[in-house]
C-alpha cells in the first residue's frame, strides 16, 4: 500500500503540535505513521455492519451528582503551586499587548 500519511500531512501535524522536524524526520515519520495505519487497517477485515458503534467501554450510564455546592480550595491553596501569581490570580505571560 502507498504512503497513507504523506510529508505534507506530517508537516501539518508537526505544526499543530508545535514540533520542529528535519526533512529526514518528515520522511521517517511519514513511513512510520503509514505503517501503523496499515497495521491497524487489518481490523477492517472484520465485518462490523451489524455492530453498534461503541462510545464508551463501560456498560454504565447516567452517573450524576446532585446540584449542591460543596467545599472549595482556599485561594492560597489553589495558587500554592503556581510558578507566578498576582493578587489572587495565576500570572501568565501577557496574552494581549
Amino acid at each position: 500500500m502507498s504512503a497513507k500519511i504523506g510529508p505534507e500531512q506530517v508537516r501539518k501535524v508537526a505544526h499543530l503540535a508545535r514540533i520542529k522536524l528535519s526533512e529526514s524526520e518528515v520522511e521517517q515519520f511519514s513511513e512510520q505513521l503509514s505503517d501503523i495505519l496499515t497495521y491497524v487497517d487489518q481490523l477492517n477485515e472484520l465485518d462490523t455492519s451489524n455492530v453498534e458503534p461503541t462510545t464508551h467501554p463501560l456498560r454504565l450510564s447516567n452517573v450524576f451528582r446532585k446540584d449542591e455546592a460543596g467545599e472549595t480550595l482556599s485561594n492560597e491553596a489553589a495558587l500554592a503551586n503556581a510558578p507566578k501569581k498576582h493578587g489572587g490570580f495565576f500570572a501568565v505571560p501577557k496574552v494581549l499587548e
Binding site: 489553589a78 507566578k84 493578587g87 489572587g88 490570580f89 501568565v92 505571560p93 501577557k94 496574552v95
Partner: peptide, 12 residues
C-alpha cells in the same frame, strides 16, 4: 484579566 502590569491574570 488583561489589565495587570507585566502579566495576564487567570481567574478560574
Amino acid at each position: 484579566v488583561h489589565d495587570l502590569p507585566d502579566c495576564t491574570g487567570v481567574d478560574l
